[in-house]
Amino acid sequence: MKIGTRLILGLLLAAFALSGCGEKGPEKKKYGVVTTGVASFWDICKTGAEHAGAELDVEVEVLFPNDGVEQKSKMEDMLSRGVDGIAAAVIDPVNQSEFFDEVADRVEFITMDTDAPDSKRKVYIGVDNYDAGRMCGQLVKEALPDGGKVVMFIGRLEQDNSKRRRQGVIDELLDRSHDSSRFDVPGEVQKGDKYTVLATLTDEFDRAKGKANAEDMLTKHPDVGCFVGLFAYNPPLILEALKQAKKLNVVKVVGFDEEGPTLQGIIDGTVHGTVVQNPYEYGYQSVKVLHALATGADAEIPENKFINIPARQIRKDNVETFWADLNKKLIGE
């Protein structure tokens, strides 16, 4: 027994020594960027993060978990492998905070795209989704200048950015004051002077269901004026449903994010416009800020711990320039 134990110990030590031999000089810093799912949106974010990594000569790993459980385990694995800082997009701000605090105790931790304001994250890089929602509402107003009925479609409503984005649209349409803490229950009809928001339907990322939702709303409200797709894949599904129902251009479409069919729709005139975030900057800035924090440099963190990367409205006039630039970022140039 004794000899065996000693042998194993010896082997372990040797392995340790050997693994050290492979390294040359000081190790590169390592940062993780964790998204909330799989989408081209996150691929652009990845490009931004990798560009920053190349500039700073650091290692960057981007992860694409599908849900909160997977996100937690993937981040835990990342911690075990060794990492100097993590930037994460938040799925559930309230219930994930405790875990994020654990992460923040061990490495540099910031949030991006979606925030967990009550956690110990150092800073939040992203858009104010409420503002972005209001921008989306402005597009609806442009599409329906005389007012009308509006239905919204979204993947899921539990996450903070969904709630704020949706609330922004409603508040803008109802000409309410700027108050991002408001929350209207999804089941209720919100009636304003000119605009009525009939419903917000969720599909839990099931595309057949997302399309069926749009179809069912065409059935239920034949006089609907505008469909708003709040998650990236929603506008293309709305377009499919409208196309088959031969209601393209009859029902206006306003989108969020920049899927190909959405942008093509803007060019064709079937989509009035879309609100885009700047995922490239999320990724790029996340890595830059993490590196500044980890190396003790000045990270230039503002008082309110929020680095705003503003959203933009894309309409027919600017869609082609935007798309060309996007394609460059998508292929990682």
Partner: peptide, 11 residues
């Protein structure tokens, strides 16, 4: 073909 696109993670 009906929906137009599919995402591998949840289709």
């Amino acid at each position: 073909m009906n929906v137009g696109s599919a995402q591998p993670s949840n289709f």
